[in-house]
């Protein structure tokens, strides 16, 4: 199958989709020579992220093998991972210093 998503680092728990994928369609995500296939639970627009495994609330989201934020709610495999379920951990003037230190 033709790859339509990329997992940049083997540690990553999200993939970036390289073309629009409709809900129910297959995500075919490549990471080097490895390919994983699973259904998209929602429409995933070009350039957006899809969870490649289930992510628990509070768990960090990894891309490029690095932390890009944390899950604000549980995210199922195949779900769209974006601003509705992923929060930033940096530049958060809305959190008090103690809260931020704990994150």
């Amino acid at each position: 199958m033709i790859r339509n998503a990329i997992i940049i680092d083997p540690e990553d728990n999200i993939a970036t989709v390289l073309r629009d994928i409709a809900a129910g369609g297959d995500v075919v995500a490549g990471c080097g020579d490895e390919v994983v296939t699973f259904p998209a639970l929602q429409d995933i627009p070009f350039g957006h992220k899809v969870a490649v495994r289930a992510v628990a609330e509070g768990e960090t989201i990894l891309k490029y093998g690095a932390v890009i934020g944390a899950a604000s709610t549980g995210i199922e495999r195949g779900a769209h991972a974006h601003v509705h379920n992923v929060v930033s951990l940096r530049g958060r003037g809305d959190l008090n210093p103690e809260q931020e230190a704990n994150q």
Binding site: T16, P45, F46, G47, H48, K49, I61, K63, A66, V67, I68, G69, A81, H82, V83, V86, V87, S88, L89, R90, G91, R92, G93, D94
Partner: peptide, 28 residues
């Protein structure tokens, strides 16, 4: 400087256009 504004800077960084393009956080 960003935190001094007392808000989550998202919407400023990343910008609304960045977010439409699929970028979720400043870290990403």
């Amino acid at each position: 400087r960003a935190k001094a504004a007392g808000v989550d800077m998202r919407g400023g960084q990343p910008t609304p256009g960045n977010i439409k393009g699929g970028l979720t956080t400043i870290e990403e």
